[in-house]
């Protein structure tokens, strides 16, 4: 099974993208499992996904450094052994940043076969200036972007060319190696490209 992480700030369009993505994967006969976690839960997203027919598993709470990690590890093992989906999608939320989840999955990969797909962060172009200038937001945003293979500039249908250019430049400063894709799930912009990347990209962890 291939582990794909999709991160992004609240309201960046993750749920809309995830719904479209899992539908696309299902059309391609791919089995998908989704893990949700937080220091609390994200029940709304989880419920939306369940309604869309995806297998959603909650991994409980606890400190992300160990108790949550233990739950995630056990859940990855159980899913790998019992369901063996083609893709397992994790939305790193709260303080669970992508690199920590990758480190943890590396440990599990010794016991169950896991390959590592792209880590994708959605960056909301409509709020770009706020995201890169608010000191309190910048740390979490830049941590997510630095950990990413692909950054999708989301909601490009709702902003002008200057905002997209600004977003692209700021993201490139934070992670010069990330591929940057314009995305509007609603309008179909960049969606096929991103879905293909999910299906095709395998990275060395």
């Amino acid at each position: 099974m291939r582990l794909v992480q999709i991160a992004g700030y609240l309201g960046s369009g993750k749920t809309t993208f995830l719904l479209a993505l899992v539908q696309k994967l299902a059309e391609n006969d791919k089995k998908v499992a989704i893990l949700v976690n937080d220091m609390g839960e994200i029940p709304v997203d989880g419920k939306v996904m369940e309604k869309a027919g995806m297998k959603v598993k909650d991994i409980g709470g606890g400190c992300v450094c160990c108790t949550l990690s233990g739950s995630l590890m056990n859940t990855l093992l159980a899913i790998g052994r019992e369901q063996n989906p083609d893709f397992i999608i994790i939305e790193p939320t709260g303080i669970a940043v992508p690199k920590n989840i990758t480190e943890l999955a590396q440990r599990v990969s010794k016991k169950v076969e896991i390959s590592f797909g792209a880590t994708i962060t959605l960056f909301d172009t409509t709020r770009a200036e706020k995201l890169v200038t608010y000191d309190t937001l910048k740390r979490l945003i830049s941590t997510q972007i630095k950990d990413s293979d692909i950054v999708a500039l989301s909601k490009v249908d709702a902003c002008d060319a200057d905002a997209i250019k600004f977003s692209k430049e700021e993201v490139a400063k934070m992670n010069p190696n990330a591929e940057i894709i314009n995305l509007s799930t609603k309008e179909g912009v960049g969606f096929e490209e991103l879905a293909s990347a999910v299906m095709e990209i395998e990275v060395s962890a």
Binding site: M39, P43, D58, G60
Partner: peptide
């Protein structure tokens, strides 16, 4: 805050707060 204890879940899941 309302807490989920995962009474019906096999294995060990630490309680979490339901929603914000």
């Amino acid at each position: 805050a309302v807490v989920n204890y995962y009474d019906d879940v096999d294995g060990m899941l630490y309680p979490t707060i339901k929603g914000k």
